[in-house]
Design a protein around this nucleic acid. Structure first.
Length: 630
RNA sequence: GCGACGGUAGCUCAGCCGGAUAGAGCAACGGUUUUCUAAACCGUCGGUCGCGAGUUCGAGUCUCGCCCGUCGCGCCA
């Protein structure tokens, strides 16, 4: 997997991105060099360590030695004795306890890592090995058309977008696909209501609001068993049979819905590549029925076409119902067609579907079915991931509702976030002009909502609390944004540009990182790339506890990215960024940056620049906008 | 009934392939500002990791049983 020589640090100024991964590789080959028996089976298990013990620790010796009835400490000593110079140059190491090997980066190696990873492009180039040359389709948000997005749509959108960005950062080509709920029986009632009571003025001002009103009217006018319900069903049949008038209405519903959704998406930094809703797969389900029937994966049961999985304890009797007894398709059939389309049209290596946990059974059955189907047909089988998340509840533990008990519209929720943030900004920073405060409030308010959703393990329910998400203490967006703003402030005061790279995720191609940097630094000048870090020239070695703690935390960024990307759990990145911001705040308090000693000042500016780079890169990966002041 | 997810400090949550003395924030109490944004920092207090067994050098983490909560389980998505 690693094509580069696995040296954590070498004289060629080549520095690995993920130090832990490279250390693991080196230790594995060291085991062979040290003559350990069965060395090929030795797994070093290098991971980031509690800072009290060092930067990284290798725990693998214990399990390895125990399985072979060896003395773990003696084995560890043998291994350590054979460590190559590359490791000796870069790390101090000790054997501790029963046989842990602790590695602490030497300040020179730490310095070299920070020197090398000085731009978003370099960070991305380092991270891109994980999903290089892969295409991933991410299916998220996926609201129903002709309805408002409400608070229940927040998590899928926010988590999905963060996952897209993580996958892109780790090298994947990402296809963002909004699998809209744009087909179904509700359109019969909506058309019924629309044809009788549509208000053109209301449609012009807030179309979605009006469509919701018309659906309710249509629904209330067509109780079970009524002749009106038959009429509504007739409208649905006409739509399904391609009646031009109803198709045009349906198209209008979709168009105005998408326009309304985009207003939300714009605020959350989301832009879909495709909006292939259920309707798109109408003419593609026949093939699914045919192939699954021919393959005898599907069978008829009680008039419906279903799939059972005999090898599965539950799904051998719990059917996957893919065509209703009346012949109509349902979401199982369209989801099967969707999987096929993503593989055939997008050449997906991975598919990620982001929905709440209640759909767990459905996707488990879907994926089991897809695996059998694709295997039988020799279709390429992508990685299939159902990314689930828990419910959003109020502080009483119940579903989030307005005071009057209605569903909270997402639009209103985002507005309230901005308003609340504005009130805080106005209080904390009254000197700022109105426009500046508004802009800060937008970033802080929306960021707070996004970050609150992302910072918690997505598997559990999450308690929505304005006060907690907008707090300046703790693992919150304002705390992180404040750290970013303080760093900008330092550079602003000194008249310096922290890197000219304040928006690290702008659409730049992933470049091959330049490997040489000029030793001679020039005055800051945008026309001389590579010279913009002039303020770092003459930086001396890190000395203070706060400098070292911050520097060491910075070098753990690759591990956070790897963990979040591998598990599709953005909260690992959040936690890292929070800890990094904490280290920075401690450093900021303990060590003044703008000191007279040029060497000290240069190295502290370098720490500031790297902290800013990684905080901003990380926050942008989460979908947040960062600020230069707040 | 079967299954998924959750149960860790008073509250809200982290805790990666089993690893070292289980960590944060809030709340409570105490301290820090002629210095780059105090929207900050430092400290103190706070634990039967739901309960009980088991596996092992080592369990919050794995296995089994039980309790509690949320949710899912045939024609909604």
């Amino acid at each position: 997997m690693l094509q580069r020589p696995a040296l954590p640090f070498s004289r060629q100024m080549h520095v690995s991105f993920n130090l832990a991964a490279d250390l693991d590789t080196v230790l594995k080959s060291t085991a062979a060099a040290a003559g350990l028996e069965d060395a090929a089976a030795f797994a070093p298990e290098v991971r980031t360590a509690d800072p009290r013990h060092g930067d990284f620790q290798a725990n693998g010796v214990l399990g390895y030695a125990k399985a072979r009835k060896l003395n773990p400490r003696a084995t560890a000593e043998k291994l350590v004795a054979a460590l190559p110079d590359s490791v000796r140059e870069a790390y101090d190491f000790t054997i501790a306890g029963p046989g842990f090997i602790n590695f602490t980066l030497k300040p020179t190696a730490l310095f070299a890592w920070l020197r090398a990873h000085d731009s978003a492009a370099h960070l991305r180039a380092g991270a891109a090995a994980a999903h290089a040359n892969q295409t991933w389709v991410v299916d998220y948000s996926s609201p129903n058309t002709a309805k408002q997005m409400h608070v229940g749509h927040l998590r899928s959108a926010v988590i999905g977008e963060a996952i897209c960005r993580l996958l892109e950062f780790t090298g994947a080509k990402v296809v963002r696909d909004n699998h809209l709920g744009d087909w179904g029986t509700q359109f019969g009632k909506l058309i019924y209501g629309y044809k009788r009571w549509a208000d053109p003025a209301a449609l012009a001002t807030d179309a979605i609001e009006e469509l919701e009103r018309l659906y309710k009217l249509g629904h209330n006018a067509t109780p079970d068993g009524s002749p009106a319900l038959d009429e509504a069903r007739a409208e649905l049949v006409k739509l399904q049979n391609g009646d031009p008038e109803n198709v045009a209405l349906w198209q209008k519903f979709s168009d105005v819905s998408l326009a309304a959704f985009q207003q939300i998406y714009d605020r959350l930094g989301i832009k879909f590549d495709h909006n292939l809703g259920e309707s798109f797969y109408n003419d593609k389900v026949e093939r699914v029925y045919r192939e699954l029937t021919e393959l005898e994966i599907a069978e008829t049961s009680e008039g419906a076409l279903v799939v059972f999985h005999p090898e599965h304890p539950r799904f051998k009797t719990q059917p996957f119902l893919m065509r209703k007894a009346d012949g109509a398709s349902n979401y199982a059939s369209t989801d099967l067609a969707t999987a096929l389309h993503r593989v055939e049209q997008f050449k997906a290596d991975g598919i990620v579907v982001v929905t709440d946990f209640r759909q767990g059974d459905h996707f488990e059955q879907l994926f089991l079915t897809v695996k059998k189907w694709f295997a039988a047909k020799s279709y390429r089988l992508p990685e299939l991931h159902h990314v689930t998340f828990g419910a959003v509840t109020g502080e009483d533990g119940k579903a989030l509702k307005t005071r009057s008990g209605d569903v909270i519209k997402l639009k209103d929720l985002l507005n309230e976030a901005e308003d609340r943030a504005f009130a805080i900004v106005a209080e904390k920073n009254p000197d700022l002009p109105e426009a500046g405060r508004r802009d800060i409030a937008r970033a802080v308010g929306l960021g707070a909502v996004q970050y609150a959703d992302l910072s918690q393990n997505r598997s559990s329910n999450y308690v929505f609390s304005w006060d907690k998400m907008l707090a300046l203490d703790g693992n919150t967006a304002p705390y992180l944004l404040y750290a970013v703003a303080r760093i900008h402030s330092i550079f602003r005061k000194l008249g310096l540009d922290p890197a000219g790279d304040c928006h690290p995720l702008d659409d730049k191609p992933i470049p091959t990182p330049p490997r040489e940097k000029p030793d001679v630094c020039h005055l800051m000048d945008d026309k001389h790339p590579g010279a913009r870090m002039a303020f770092e020239a003459g930086a001396t070695a890190f000395e203070t506890a706060a400098e070292l703690a911050l520097a060491r935390k910075l070098a753990k960024f690759p591990d956070a990215i790897r963990l979040a990307g591998d598990t599709l759990r953005p909260h690992f990145l959040c936690l890292y960024l929070y800890e990094l911001a904490g280290e920075f705040s401690a450093f900021y308090t303990a060590d003044k940056v703008a000191v007279d000693d040029s060497g000290i000042r240069a190295r502290r500016l370098m720490l500031c620049a790297r902290t800013l780079l990684i905080l901003e890169t990380g926050l942008h990966l989460l979908g947040l906008r960062t600020l230069t002041r707040m």
